[in-house]
């Protein structure tokens, strides 16, 4: 009997949707879509990193010529300072990349979740119930935004007229339609449920 109960409990855990895709996911909550910021938001970081790598390569190739310009003591000091700064910069660059991966916008059938996370410093979570959304606006202006299909979504909440702005969203048209559809279905479901309960 005890074994049967344990098996039932395990079956319930397997079937449960809780925390299946992200921490804090409810039992009856299903993920409809998720996205990260468009990769063009990393363009500046990659550009600076590319220049840094090119400069380091130039320095290594012309090291002897550069070493002749400075005295040994000054050269060592310069190497230490520049080496420390570059080590810090390389770590910072990859932490920014990892932050890009950890920052996610999740649209479920109940709410919109904006998770802004970095490895060490940032841990923010914003949850917006679909029923509190009044309007959703899509902004896609400029050559880059239209060419690479990304833009901003501005969500106006009905209760306090506050706005939530999500920038660099890929394929904003799809996400706009998904939010509107999910909101409509959720509101219909909420209206049906009191009728079922009697």
């Amino acid at each position: 009997m005890e074994k049967a109960e344990q098996i039932d409990q395990i079956d319930q855990i397997i079937e449960s949707n809780k925390d299946r895709h992200f921490r804090g996911q409810a039992h009856e909550e299903h993920v409809l879509a998720f996205c990260r910021k468009h990769s063009t938001s990393l363009f500046y970081e990659f550009f600076i990193f590319g220049i840094t790598v090119a400069l380091i390569t130039l320095f290594m190739v012309n090291f002897r010529a550069i070493a002749d310009i400075f005295t040994p003591g000054l050269l060592h000091l310069l190497m230490l300072v520049v080496g420390t700064m570059l080590t810090y910069y390389i770590h910072r660059f990859f932490l920014v990349l990892l932050r890009h991966y950890l920052t996610v916008i999740i649209i479920t059938d109940i709410r919109i979740l904006t998770i802004t996370r970095s490895v060490y410093f940032v841990n923010e979570k914003e949850s917006v119930d679909l029923t509190t959304i009044r309007d959703v606006h899509k902004y896609q202006s400029g050559l880059l935004e239209n060419m690479f299909n990304y833009g901003n979504l501005k969500i106006t909440l009905g209760t306090s007229a506050t706005c939530i702005e999500m920038s660099s969203i890929p394929n904003p048209e799809f996400h706009l339609r998904l939010i509107n559809k999910a909101k409509q279905q959720y509101m219909e479901m909420k209206q049906e449920k009191p009728l079922e309960d009697g």
Binding site: D19, F22, F34, R36, S39, H100, Y101, V104, I115, R117
Partner: peptide, 13 residues
């Protein structure tokens, strides 16, 4: 951190 975010881990560039 990724253990609690079992969504697709790759991103389109």
């Amino acid at each position: 951190l990724l253990k609690f975010l079992t969504l697709e881990e790759s991103s389109y560039t």
